[in-house]
Amino acid sequence: MDELELLKKDWGKRKPQFEQVSVDEIYAMLHKKSSSIVKILFYISIAELIFWILLNSIPFFSSDAYKEQINMVYKNDTTFYIVLSVSYAIILLFIYLLYKAYKNITATDSVRVLMQRILKTRKIIQYYVIYNLLMAFTAMVLGSYYGIVNDPVIYEQFNGFNQTQIIISIGIMVIFTLMFVLLTWVFYRILYGILIRRLLKNYKELKKLEI
């Protein structure tokens, strides 16, 4: 006899005894908090949004002296404010996309669609992180350039440098920037790697069936 048929016979005929959960216990469960992966991902995305928004807003929260220095470096350049406004618009766009993606996640979808929807939210957050890393990289490069050109103190210092010293300083800046970007990237790989390892494994298993 087929193994599964034997199991099916048993499954239907001799229902295993389960300790029944009482009505009161069910009521209590309804008010407990879910610890689902979607909830965890949701909190992480909120944390991501806040973290990068705060990082972008540092100039506005810092001392007047710092603000003055920023203004001097960028010389109240309108391009600087345009870039800033665009970056906030992009953050708003990401908030909207994430909100929509989370609203679409429902446990009543098929197993495959549910997985796809969760993976989509992770993709949005991933793009958000890539976007921020690119921005951080660009800001660091542009910031250094503007600093050297417009800040008299830094300009003086660089003026006194010979060619080798300039190359070494630029090299150090580039290495630090790359290390920052790389470390952030590794951090996300590990974080999401741990969180969605099982989901990815199961999703691949389902996809394999379609080949």
């Binding site: 610890s35 689902s36 992966i37 979607v38 965890i40 446990a107 009543t108 979808d109 098929s110 197993v111 549910l114 997985m115 969760i118 099982r198 989901l199 199961n202």
Partner: peptide, 16 residues
């Protein structure tokens, strides 16, 4: 309807 939600939770949503 329960089958679907229960399986989705066990396979995808629940963190072991």
């Amino acid at each position: 309807w329960m089958y679907r939600v229960a399986l989705n939770t066990a396979i995808t949503l629940y963190r072991k």
